[in-house]
Amino acid sequence: MSTAATPVNVSAPLELEWEADNVNDQYYLYLHFNEVEELAANETRAFNITINGEFLYGPMTPRYRSADTILTTTPLTGAARYQVSLSKTKNSTLPPILNAIEVYKVKDFSQSETQQDDVDAIKNIKNAYGVARNWQGDPCGPLKYMWEGLNCSIDGYDPPRITSLNLSSSGLIGQIESSISKLTMLQYLDLSNNSLNGPLPDFLIQLHSLKVLNVGKNKLTGLVPSGLLERSKTKSLSLSVDDNSGLCTTKSCRKKSSHVPLIASISAIIVAILLISLGFWIFRRHK
């Protein structure tokens, strides 16, 4: 530390500042001092140190060729910007100096808990279907123990969100559980090869992040929601609905199925009339 910074205006304070990425971030500050000049008998250097106007230490009088460090013992937090000011005292003849500064940001390596709405939704799904998996604790963490069939978004800052749910071949019975609609960050949903019945619900359209939906090999009925078909056409959604005999992708398939009994009935009537007519003709001929 053979060099030091001083203010351009010798009567002004020496100021340094930085902006926080988040007001909840925590910082520790280290200031290093060493007098690099051998002062004359009539010279003095003394200054006070403040952070955002709050007194930290003073008066600071650096020692000649000896290092001193002033540090914060508790984290700095709660501000969008931090300003460190070194202001000379009234009796000081020389401006403040600073040889080095270190700012450390606290990094929390522990994983946050899964976002609560996602936790509630996946637990409701578990209870509704009686999922026979070892789903215990937090769905997304720790990462090593993430629930089977799930994938989550984990960035180290925001609470994890469930982005993928795979319940294929899980023995699911009943209708598609409405709690799935609460997994608003879901990108991948696989419910294939189960015994799900009833309609394909409209709430799936509201899952705007959904990119893959597989409900093949179930017992679903009714029309596939037009919103899902439209997204499938635009390639924004990979949609699989195969092997659901009662599920229609167009209105025409429903109309077609409703016409079959009518056509069969008309055909039966025509055959009956022909048989009666034939019998009557044979009877008259023999007579």
Rank of each mutant, 00 (worst) to 15 (best):
Gln175Cys: 06
Gly216Pro: 01
Leu150Trp: 04
Asn151Trp: 09
Lys182Asp: 09
Phe109Ile: 12
Trp135Gln: 05
Lys219Gly: 06
Val119Ser: 10
Ser178Glu: 13
Leu167Asp: 01
Asn193Leu: 07
Leu247Asn: 04
Ile173Gln: 14
Lys235Val: 07
Val106Gly: 03
Pro160Ala: 06
Ile205Met: 04
Asp155Leu: 08
Tyr188Asp: 09
Leu207Trp: 09
Leu204Gln: 02
Thr221Tyr: 02
Ser192Asp: 02
Ser168Glu: 09
Asn124Ile: 06
Ser178Phe: 11
Gln116His: 13
Leu150Asp: 04
Ile101Lys: 05
Gln111Thr: 12
Asn218Met: 00
Leu223Ile: 07
Ile162Leu: 05
Val103Thr: 11
Phe109Val: 14
Phe203Met: 05
Gln111Met: 13
Val106Asp: 03
Asp243Gln: 12
Glu113His: 11
Val224Phe: 09
Gln206Thr: 10
Phe109His: 15
Asp120Met: 12
Ser168Lys: 12
Ser170Ile: 05
Leu237Trp: 06
Val212Cys: 00
Asp108Asn: 15
Ser245Glu: 10
Asn214Ala: 05
Ser195Cys: 02
Asn218Asp: 01
Asn134His: 08
Gly171Trp: 03
Tyr188Gln: 09
Asp120Lys: 13
Leu186Asn: 07
Pro142Lys: 06
Ser179Thr: 04
Gly137Glu: 10
Ile173Asn: 13
Leu213Ala: 03
Ile125Lys: 10
Ser245Cys: 00
Tyr188Ile: 03
Cys140Met: 06
Ser226Val: 13
Leu228Gly: 02
Lys211Arg: 14
Gln116Cys: 05
Glu113Ser: 12
Val131Glu: 03
Leu237Ser: 02
Val215Gly: 00
Val119Leu: 10
Glu177Tyr: 02
Asp118Lys: 11
Asp243Tyr: 11
Ser192Arg: 00
Ser169Ala: 13
Ser112Met: 14
Pro201His: 05
Gln136Tyr: 08
Asn214Asp: 15
Ser226Thr: 14
Lys144Trp: 04
Lys123Arg: 15
Gly141Tyr: 07
Ile180Tyr: 06
Ser192Glu: 01
Leu213Cys: 02
Ser236Phe: 01
Leu247Met: 06
Val212Gly: 00
Gly174Phe: 08
Ile122Gly: 02
Met146Pro: 00
Ser226Gln: 13
Asp158Glu: 14
Val106Ile: 11
Lys126Pro: 00
Asn124Thr: 11
Leu223His: 01
Ser245Leu: 06
Leu213Val: 01
Ser153Ile: 07
Leu150Asn: 03
Tyr129His: 08
Glu113Ala: 11
Gln115Tyr: 14
Ser112His: 15
Thr114Met: 10
Ser236Met: 07
Lys235Thr: 12
Ser169Gln: 13
Asn193Arg: 15
Asn127Asp: 15
Leu220Thr: 02
Lys182His: 02
Gly141Ile: 08
Val106Arg: 07
Val103Ser: 11
Ile173Glu: 12
Tyr104Glu: 12
Gly198Asp: 06
Ser170Lys: 03
Ser209Glu: 14
Asn214Trp: 03
Leu204Met: 06
Ala128Glu: 09
Asn166Leu: 02
Tyr145Thr: 15
Asn166Glu: 02
Tyr145Ile: 04
Ile154Ser: 11
Glu102Asp: 15
Leu143Thr: 13
Gly198Arg: 01
Phe203Asp: 01
Thr221Pro: 01
Cys140Ala: 07
Glu113Ile: 12
Leu200Glu: 04
Leu186Trp: 02
